[in-house]
């Protein structure tokens, strides 16, 4: 079972499997439909590190169900790596023949809860593994709401019987942009539903906060992380890095930072 401090696998790590084995407790792998590619990437780690799968294109919040081919491919990958769990985003990005790469926040309404929950439940049954859903950054939300974002997430967790992949950086950025209290938000989420965290550095360009997945996790994000580790059953942290990344060495500092927080609340991992 995945637990401890892990890293989102990136192609930049290909040549240094020994460093990953030495420094992280588990891997998060972005879904790829081609099993040969998965084997090539994860071969050195399978059986040595637990793996969780992160999916990005199922659009589980869309009224239309996710594309069958993609769901089947996800199951093949999850089975292949014996994923501890599978994650997706609590959002939508597809309608009819339009599909975008961004995650749009769902309207915080009962209807959206019902639609997303059904797709999550179906997927969870099909995969035969736990699903956890990630909170996304958003610039725009549907103006008529029945619930706050946190209350909405809580209701989806309960009706879909799924977990939360809490992206702490996303939560922090949203709380700044939309001016809400992140601790109030966290208090709303059932403590036993927070399964995994995402942590990453962010940037500010032209006065706008961007979840750019750079290095250097903000102290305010770490503060929220400490709250989560202190107040929930969460036992798994993943560092996401997509920029300022040449080799695994570039993430070592962030790994050490997360490990120190992890150990403070959960003790040292047996390695």
């Amino acid at each position: 079972m995945a637990r401890g401090v892990g890293i989102g696998y990136r192609s930049q790590f290909t040549n240094t499997p020994e460093l990953l084995l030495q420094h992280v407790d588990f891997l998060e792998y972005n879904q790829r439909p081609n099993l040969e590619a998965v084997q090539a990437d994860l071969g050195p780690f399978l059986g040595k590190l637990p793996v969780v799968i992160h999916s990005i294109n199922l659009s589980l919040g869309s009224v239309e169900p996710p594309a069958e081919q993609r769901v089947e491919a996800l199951k093949r990958t999850a089975d292949f790596v014996n994923a501890s769990w599978v994650s997706e985003h609590l959002s939508y990005s597809r309608v009819g023949d339009i599909e975008i790469e961004n995650f749009i926040a769902l309207p915080y309404t009962d209807e959206a809860i019902e639609v997303a929950s059904k797709h999550i439940l179906d997927l969870q049954n099909f995969l035969g593994r736990p699903m956890i859903m990630e909170n996304v950054t958003h610039h725009i939300t549907w103006p008529v709401k029945q619930y706050s974002e946190a209350e909405f997430i809580k209701r989806v967790m309960l009706s879909a019987d799924c977990g939360l992949l809490l992206d702490v950086t996303n939560l922090y950025l949203n709380s700044v942009v939309h001016k809400y209290d992140p601790i109030e938000y966290l208090k709303t989420i059932p403590r036993d539903r927070v399964v995994q965290l995402h942590l990453a550095g962010h940037t500010e360009t032209d006065g706008e906060l961007v979840d750019s997945h750079v290095g250097g996790i903000d102290p305010k994000v770490m503060e929220l992380t400490e709250w989560v580790m202190d107040n929930t059953s969460c036992d798994a942290m993943i560092i996401e890095r997509d920029n300022q990344l040449e080799t695994f060495n570039d993430v070592l500092e962030d790994v050490a930072l997360c490990r120190s927080v992890y150990q403070k609340y959960r003790g040292a991992m047996e390695r």
Binding site: I98, I104, P107
Partner: peptide, 16 residues
Amino acid sequence: MSLQQIQSLMLNLSIK
């Protein structure tokens, strides 16, 4: 179903 309408509007807005 109104969620369908909202999603259709939002996705069209996103690209147009």
